[in-house]
Measured scan of single mutants.
Amino acid sequence: KTEWPELVGKSVEEAKKVILQDKPEAQIIVLPVGTIVTMEYRIDRVRLFVDKLDNIAQVPRVG
């Protein structure tokens, strides 16, 4: 699995749990929505963009 659209609106902790069940090797990085990030693709990275309430604001994707 490479993306988790069902996690939008969920808490960071809930999202981490689901992603690590699907992809145990994932390196999860939590960032505020709108953060500028590098464009290199990494198969072991999932970025979680969160709103001010620490809920997932964008679809988490591998990369």
Rank of each mutant, 00 (worst) to 15 (best):
T2L: 11
T2I: 10
E3D: 07
E3M: 06
E3F: 05
W4T: 02
W4K: 03
W4R: 01
P5K: 03
P5L: 03
P5A: 03
V8G: 01
V8F: 06
V8Q: 04
V8E: 02
G9T: 02
G9I: 00
S11R: 08
V12K: 07
V12P: 03
V12N: 01
E14Y: 13
E14V: 12
E14R: 08
E14A: 09
A15L: 02
A15N: 01
K16A: 08
K17N: 07
V18Q: 11
I19C: 00
I19S: 01
L20Q: 11
D22N: 07
D22Y: 06
D22C: 07
D22I: 02
D22T: 07
K23F: 15
K23S: 08
P24I: 00
A26Q: 04
A26E: 02
Q27Y: 06
Q27P: 03
I29K: 12
I29W: 06
I29C: 13
I29V: 15
V30F: 01
V30E: 06
L31E: 13
P32V: 01
P32A: 06
P32H: 06
V33S: 06
V33W: 05
G34H: 08
I36G: 15
I36V: 13
V37T: 14
V37D: 15
V37C: 14
T38I: 05
M39V: 12
M39I: 09
M39G: 15
E40M: 06
Y41N: 14
Y41C: 13
R42D: 14
R42K: 13
I43Q: 13
V46G: 00
L48G: 01
L48I: 06
F49M: 09
V50Q: 01
D51N: 08
K52L: 09
L53S: 15
D54I: 01
N55F: 12
N55Y: 09
I56M: 03
I56E: 02
I56W: 00
A57E: 06
A57G: 05
A57Y: 05
Q58M: 15
Q58S: 12
V59I: 11
P60V: 05
R61W: 08
R61L: 07
G63K: 13
G63C: 12
G63S: 14
